[in-house]
C-alpha cells in the first residue's frame, strides 16, 4: 500500500502518457491533455509545501533571534505584498505590474549583472593557457566575447585593412560549427540517459523518488 500503489500509479500514468503521445485518436488526445492539466493542478500544491518550509525557516530565525533575523521580516513583507495585491486583483493589475517592473525586475537584473564581475574575476584567476585544451577554451571564449561586442568589429575594421567584421563572423562560425557539434553530442548523450532513466522509473526499477527505506 505504501510503496506498491505509488509504483502502480507511476507505471500507469507513465505508460498512458507515452502511448497517448503517439496516438492521434480523439479520446487519446483528450486523455493526454486532461492528465497534463491534472499535473498543473497537482504541481502547485508542492509549491505550497515549499513556501511553508520557507516561512518556517524564517519564522524560526526570528524566534531564535539568529544573526540578521530582522531581515527575515522583509521576506514576509515582500511575499505578503505581492500575494495580497496579485491574487485578488490579478497579474495584469497596474499596481502588481508596477511592483513587478520597479521592484522585482531591477533587483533580478542587478543580481545577475553582479555575476559579470565575479565571472571576470574568476576567469582572470583560473584561465591559464597551460595545455592545448585550456588554450582552445580560452581562444573560443575570447573570440565569442569579442565577436559579441560591436566594438570588436569596429576595432578590427579600423586597424586591419582586410576581412570586414571578421570577429563577429568568426564568432558565428564557432557557434554554428564546433560549438554546435559538441552540444549535439552532449544533447544526444543526455537524451539517451533521460529515456533509459524514464523507462527504469516507469517499470519500477528506479525507486529512489519514493524515499524512505525498503518495507516502509
Amino acid at each position: 500500500m505504501r510503496r506498491q500503489v505509488p509504483l502502480i500509479l507511476c507505471f500507469a500514468f507513465g505508460i498512458v502518457m507515452a502511448l497517448t503521445e503517439f496516438s492521434p485518436h480523439r479520446f487519446s488526445q483528450w486523455l493526454n491533455k486532461e492528465v497534463i492539466d491534472w499535473t498543473l493542478v497537482i504541481g502547485p500544491f508542492a509549491l505550497v509545501l515549499a513556501i511553508a518550509t520557507l516561512i518556517q525557516t524564517h519564522w524560526t530565525r526570528i524566534r531564535r533571534r539568529s544573526e540578521y533575523w530582522q531581515y527575515s521580516f522583509l521576506v514576509f513583507i515582500g511575499m505578503i505584498v505581492m500575494v495580497v495585491i496579485g491574487i485578488p486583483l490579478g497579474q495584469r493589475h497596474p499596481v502588481f505590474v508596477w511592483l513587478f517592473r520597479y521592484v522585482q525586475v531591477p533587483m533580478d537584473a542587478t543580481m545577475f549583472s553582479l555575476l559579470a564581475f565575479f565571472i571576470a574575476s574568476a576567469a582572470y584567476r583560473a584561465f591559464r593557457a597551460r595545455t592545448l585544451e585550456a588554450t582552445l577554451l580560452l581562444a573560443a571564449a575570447l573570440i565569442v566575447m569579442i565577436g559579441n561586442a560591436p566594438v570588436g568589429d569596429l576595432i578590427w575594421n579600423t586597424i586591419i585593412p582586410f576581412g570586414d567584421n571578421l570577429p563577429s563572423a568568426a564568432r558565428q562560425w564557432i557557434l554554428d560549427n564546433p560549438n554546435l557539434s559538441a552540444r549535439r553530442g552532449i544533447i544526444l548523450g543526455i537524451s539517451l540517459g533521460v529515456i533509459s532513466q524514464s523507462i527504469r522509473i516507469i517499470l519500477g526499477i528506479e525507486r529512489s523518488y519514493l524515499g524512505g527505506v525498503e518495507g516502509d
Partner: peptide
C-alpha cells in the same frame, strides 16, 4: 508518495516520445 509518483510517472511518460523526437531524431 502518491502525488510524487503521479508527477514523476507523467514526466517520464512525456519525456520518452518528446526527448526522442526533439533531442535525438531532430539532432541526427
Amino acid at each position: 508518495r502518491y502525488p510524487i509518483a503521479i508527477l514523476i510517472g507523467v514526466g517520464s511518460g512525456l519525456a520518452i516520445p518528446n526527448v526522442m523526437r526533439a533531442d535525438i531524431f531532430e539532432q541526427v
